[in-house]
Design a protein around this nucleic acid. Structure first.
Lengths: 254, 254
DNA sequence: CGGAAACTTGAAAATTTTCAAGTCAGGTGG
DNA sequence: CCACCTGACTTGAAAATTTTCAAGTTTCCG
């Protein structure tokens, strides 16, 4: 198993470089910054596609500054499962009774927070622990939603949920619909959705035929009617639309 | 949707009534007791099979005193997914972006800890938050393992993992192997493993034919050779054997 | 422009689900 | 104590879905 650890530090990027900074973030920015300062000196790492961080026992958490990272596990026979996808501003804490890593799916930079061997940050106070609890709690939520996806949705439903979710998380609204960049390969999508790459490709072709999404290239698509896409999925989207969008759409999701 | 809420309080059971008290518990007993005392007065609830607690937004956590509870979600069309099974001494925090409940699969009694609307316990100090973080972190671990199970294991592997896991969690070692009581129906097992009940039944028949487990009744089985069962599963078991057993078996799992 | 890698598509095999028909077990009433 | 009834479990056969293996195509880069 090759480990792409790359310890070179780079300058901390400013928050306002990220398009998503204004939305409902899983984590209060100010609190996390404070947490970063109080722990060991925050360390920024850069990873190229395929490089990994972490290991079996979680003693660090990371915040993604830019790029796309996956929390994933590989079974002894090579089967891989991506447990969670993290975009800019997301916080991840690798936790698994087996082996789990953070793997960069695109060039990624992230900020590392050191925990001590009890899984708690150095010099933590109640507010920091509260923040850690919130992080872990949010993580439980997203992993739980994904678990239901894998346990009870068929291929078409999984792919539609994935496309809609990516649109909510990183898409740009245009007059022609939502324009989304998909920085994952078909293999990555398959490993995220618990399918195999050929199945993903076939389902994507069905999605195109049904005009639920138009592909400008294998890595860019347009969703003309995101409600139509969402209607194929019997689930509340894991990353709900921003408050402003919800109001515009006249929805009042829980 | 019927809610089986039943607010009757019963006497708090003593820890030593539970056979599992001596094993590696996810949570330090003393710390949890302290947490229970510092929050709102701990409330003990009794549920019959099928009754539910909780709801969309998590404002409580529970510790199981006896019985078997499931953290589960039901999709609008009726598909159900059990996200996690909790036995005596386990702590659960329902967290889901959709709808999630605690559902009693057998008569269950559990202890309720009230959180305030920010998802934190009343009057919490750093130590309590640390405990909450540990609870959430352990929960992430077990849900992540289950996610890999649903995403990448086939039916036979899922069932073998389930049988081995139940043996480790609640089985009794005898000279003929591990004797395990299975308090779930085939439907419950199916909803836990992301299969349907007929498939579970068929796979269980294959397990019997392969002599990996002997069924004394539909709800009691014997595992003559737990290593043989474990060998069918390409994963570290989510609930590892107790330290003493690991040493006996000569294993050094991470 | 050429080549490698990623993506798509086809056909057969494997797995799982669906629908339907038994079989078994526990509880009730005669 | 036994027949019977109901619900849970098992099994069978066909249908649906997904995977596997094997070509093609397209896309991306040098």
């Amino acid at each position: 198993m090759v480990w792409g650890m790359q310890p070179s530090d780079v300058a901390l990027k400013r928050d306002d470089q990220h398009a998503n900074t204004d939305h409902d973030c899983n984590l209060c920015q100010a609190d996390l910054c404070r947490l970063l300062k109080q722990g060991r000196s925050p360390r920024v790492r850069s990873l190229n596609r395929g490089q990994r961080l972490g290991g079996p026992s979680c003693q660090k958490i990371w915040r993604i500054l830019s790029g796309l990272a996956a929390l994933c596990t590989t079974l002894p026979d090579g089967r891989r499962q991506i447990m969670c996808l993290s975009l800019a501003d997301d916080v991840i804490c690798p936790a698994s009774s087996g082996e789990a890593w953070i793997e960069a799916l695109t060039p990624t930079s992230l900020c590392e927070i050191e925990l001590d061997r009890h899984g708690t940050p150095n010099g933590a106070d109640a507010a920091l622990y509260a923040e850690l609890f919130r992080i872990a709690h949010d993580h439980v939520m997203s992993v739980s939603t994904h678990l239901v996806t894998l346990g009870r949705l068929d291929g078409m439903e999984r792919v539609c949920l994935f496309l809609a979710d990516m649109a909510w998380r990183s898409g740009q609204r245009t007059d022609g619909g939502w324009r989304v960049h998909l920085p994952l390969s078909r293999d990555d999508i398959a490993d995220y959705l618990g399918l195999n790459p050929e199945t993903v490709s076939r389902i994507l072709s069905r999605v195109k035929k049904a005009r639920l999404a138009t592909f400008l290239s294998p890595t860019d698509y347009l969703v003309p009617d995101i409600d139509a896409l969402q209607d194929r999925v019997p689930m509340v989207p894991p990353h709900q639309p921003r408050q402003s969008d919800r109001e515009e759409r006249g929805l009042h999701l829980v």
